[in-house]
Design a protein around this nucleic acid. Structure first.
Lengths: 153, 153
DNA sequence: GCAAATTCATTCGTATGCAAATGATATCAA
DNA sequence: TTGATATCATTTGCATACGAATGAATTTGC
């Protein structure tokens, strides 16, 4: 039997082929693609705000005024990233900044009336985005997926 | 009964509370966090290459020479993004570029011997990264998760 | 065979995302 | 009290990521 025959047998047998590395099966690669798809769905429903910007507004709407750093912790952004996001929201008049009276290091962030109006208007769209992202799964699968995803995150 | 009593009852009853929007329960937000965690794990094992750079090398190792655009399609990057990734890999001598003889629009990308050596050295580490990323799940959960994640991506 | 449409690559602009360094302030501990 | 630490915010540099516009080359449709 030739070497080519051996190769052929391996393919035809459909064995797990554990020696080869398949990028498209790696959790990191699929995670990246799933995230990309979600961001695209988000953009198709909410064109004038990015997911991180929406996250900042939604969290401020939820908890009220807080420091820039604390907000970053709550929405999983480091200090440098959250600064850029808040700067852009401020430039658009959706949040306002003020100095903490006692701790002079802190920069307090809060929604403006326009920001509050925006997030109230967008939350229904966000529910649609979540639905559409999970649409390839049944309700039961979606629940399982969210449970396992939360364990990973 | 006062309005405040009604609010209190709602909280105490631990009802699904479907009227409130909780960012931390949304699939997009958790997806973003899970991806962040994976990238951090990746960086802790492979410090001198990013996940997209690794993906490009791994795919070239898998399929051999291909055009820049085709490579982008295979590793889920648009043309602008893949160009930056390939430029940096080229600057480090891990890939080499050449013109397609027939179709003069195409830019062919291939591994250099150094690139081949690098990816062969890194693939075992990539397996460790996948393992560590999935470590919070049991083997059965991980299989379920990957199946559902693939349906989403 | 040729005009229209498509494909490939590049460039620009904008927005995360993170490491590292810095400066200001606050807290802790001897 | 003061010196060491820690925290908060900012800045810089680098690396994705994508939309939009552009130009070159190819393919399609009639």
């Amino acid at each position: 039997m030739s070497g080519e025959d051996n190769l052929l047998r391996l393919v035809e047998a459909e064995e797990p082929d554990e020696n080869n590395y398949h990028l498209q099966d790696q959790v990191g690669f699929i995670l990246r693609k799933a995230h990309q798809r979600h961001v695209a769905i988000f953009a198709s429903h909410i064109a004038d705000l990015t997911p991180p910007q929406f996250a900042a507004l939604a969290k401020l709407y939820d908890i009220g005024e807080t420091s820039q750093n604390q907000l970053g912790t709550l929405i999983a952004m480091d200090a440098a990233t959250v600064k850029g996001v808040i700067d852009r929201l401020k430039a658009r008049g959706l949040v306002e900044l003020s100095k903490h009276e006692v701790d002079k290091r802190r920069l307090l962030v809060n929604l403006t009336p326009e920001g509050r109006e925006a997030i109230e208007r967008l939350i229904p769209l966000a529910r649609t985005i979540t639905e559409e992202t999970l649409a390839p799964l049944t309700a039961k699968e979606a629940a399982t997926f969210l449970r396992l995803l939360a364990k990973l995150a």
